[in-house]
Measured scan of single mutants.
Amino acid sequence: EHQTACDSYWTSVHPEYWTKRHVWEWLQFCCDQYKLDTNCISFCNFNISGLQLCSMTQEEFVEAAGLCGEYLYFILQNIRTQG
């Protein structure tokens, strides 16, 4: 039997508790949902936990993801305040 992915999907966990996999799933979702250019995102810069992600500043997001960084930063802040 296969496990259902939704059990541990990033949407069901507060961002501060995300694993590295959750972070990448979220990035992929943002790219799909908001039509962000994946080429401007250095995924290696996001090989981090949710706690590390949440402690990043807006400037660090821009450094890590170029033009997309600002969008990603605000998307994350939205999730954190709603969560």
Rank of each mutant, 00 (worst) to 15 (best):
L53R: 03
L51W: 08
T19D: 07
C44K: 11
E1V: 06
T19L: 00
T19Q: 10
Y34C: 04
K20I: 10
E25Y: 10
E63N: 12
Q77A: 08
W18E: 02
I48H: 08
C68V: 11
F61K: 03
Y71V: 13
Q33S: 12
L72C: 05
F43T: 09
Q58D: 02
A64H: 09
I75M: 13
I75H: 15
C44T: 14
T4L: 12
V62K: 13
M56K: 04
E63C: 05
L76Q: 02
Q3K: 10
L76I: 03
N45D: 11
I75Q: 15
K20Q: 07
A64F: 03
F74P: 10
T81I: 08
K35E: 14
Q3E: 14
H22S: 04
F61Y: 01
C54V: 07
T4D: 12
E16T: 12
N78S: 11
V23M: 00
T19R: 01
A5N: 14
V13A: 04
S49Y: 01
Q3I: 10
N39M: 05
W24Q: 15
V13K: 05
L76P: 03
G66A: 02
L76N: 01
W26T: 03
R80L: 12
T81A: 11
L51R: 14
Q28H: 15
W26I: 13
A64P: 00
V23Y: 04
C44W: 08
E59W: 07
S55D: 11
L51F: 11
W18L: 02
W26A: 00
L51H: 14
W10R: 14
S55T: 09
D7A: 08
N45P: 04
Y34I: 00
V13Q: 05
L53Q: 04
V13G: 01
V23I: 13
V62A: 07
A64E: 08
K20L: 02
W24Y: 15
M56I: 00
H2K: 12
L76T: 00
F46D: 05
L51Q: 14
A65R: 01
E59T: 09
D32L: 06
S42L: 08
Q52V: 07
C31S: 04
E63F: 02
R21T: 13
N47E: 12
N78G: 11
W26Y: 06
K35Y: 04
F43S: 10
V23W: 04
N78L: 03
I79E: 07
F43D: 10
A65D: 03
T4C: 13
S42N: 15
N78W: 05
F46Q: 04
Q52M: 05
L72T: 03
A5D: 14
Q3W: 06
G66H: 00
D37N: 08
D32Y: 09
S42W: 04
S42C: 08
E59Y: 06
I75P: 03
I48C: 09
Y71P: 15
T38Y: 12
Y71Q: 15
Y34L: 06
R80W: 02
S55N: 12
L27S: 03
T81V: 10
Q58G: 02
S42T: 09
R21S: 07
G83N: 10
N78R: 13
H14K: 12
Y17W: 04
G50D: 00
I41D: 04
R80D: 01
F74T: 15
Q77T: 08
C44F: 08
W26F: 10
A65S: 09
V23L: 00
F61V: 02
V13Y: 06
W24K: 14
Q58W: 01
C44M: 11
F61S: 04
K20E: 12
S49I: 02
Y71G: 11
Y34K: 05
G83H: 14
L36M: 13
C40G: 13
C30N: 06
S42D: 14
E63A: 11
H14L: 09
I75E: 15
H14I: 06
C40K: 15
K35L: 07
E63R: 09
Y71S: 15
A64R: 13
Q3N: 15
A64L: 07
Q3Y: 08
E59M: 07
C54Q: 02
S49H: 04
L72S: 03
K35W: 05
C68T: 13
I79P: 04
S49K: 04
T19S: 10
A5V: 13
Q77N: 10
W26Q: 04
H14N: 11
M56Q: 00
G69Q: 05
G83I: 09
L27A: 04
E1L: 05
K35T: 08
V13S: 02
Q77M: 08
L27T: 04
T19H: 01
C30Q: 02
S49L: 01
G83E: 12
L76C: 05
V13L: 11
L51A: 14
D32H: 14
S42F: 04
C68N: 13
G66R: 04
Q33M: 07
L36C: 00
E60V: 03
K20V: 08
P15Y: 02
E60I: 00
I79K: 07
L36F: 13
C31D: 02
R80T: 06
E60K: 07
E59D: 08
F74R: 15
L53I: 01
N45M: 12
L67H: 15
T57I: 01
F46C: 01
V23D: 01
S12F: 03
T57G: 07
G83V: 10
H14S: 11
F74I: 12
S55A: 14
P15L: 02
C54D: 04
W24L: 14
F61R: 03
Y71E: 15
C68W: 06
R80C: 07
V62S: 09
D37E: 08
I41W: 04
N45S: 13
Q33N: 14
N78P: 02
K20H: 09
F46V: 01
L67D: 15
H2M: 08
Q58L: 12
E1I: 15
C31T: 12
N78K: 14
N39G: 10
F74C: 14
Y73Q: 02
Y34H: 08
T38M: 12
C68Y: 12
F61H: 00
I75F: 09
E63W: 04
K35N: 15
A64I: 06
E70T: 10
N47Y: 09
G69V: 02
G69R: 01
L72R: 02
Q3C: 07
Y34F: 10
T81E: 13
N39A: 14
Q82M: 08
N45F: 09
V13H: 01
N47R: 10
L67W: 12
E63D: 13
Q82N: 14
K35S: 09
L53V: 03
M56L: 09
D37A: 06
A5M: 11
F74V: 14
K20P: 08
L67F: 11
L53T: 03
E25H: 06
F29T: 14
W18K: 02
W24E: 10
Q28Y: 08
C40F: 07
F43N: 13
C30S: 08
I41H: 05
L67S: 15
C44G: 14
Q77H: 11
L36H: 07
G66M: 00
T4Y: 09
E25C: 04
Y73R: 01
R21G: 09
I75A: 15
F29N: 08
G69S: 00
H2P: 08
D37C: 05
P15V: 02
G66Q: 02
C54Y: 00
Q33I: 06
C54F: 01
L53K: 02
A5F: 09
L72F: 03
Y17A: 14
I75W: 08
E16G: 02
H22P: 02
E60S: 07
F61T: 00
S55C: 06
E16Q: 13
Y71T: 15
Y34D: 01
F46P: 02
A64Y: 08
I41C: 03
T81D: 10
H2Y: 09
E60D: 14
P15A: 03
N39P: 02
L27E: 00
Q77Y: 02
L67G: 15
Q28D: 14
G83Y: 08
F74Q: 15
C44L: 10
G69H: 03
V13R: 05
Q82K: 11
S8F: 07
L36Q: 01
C44D: 15
T57L: 04
A5Q: 13
E16W: 07
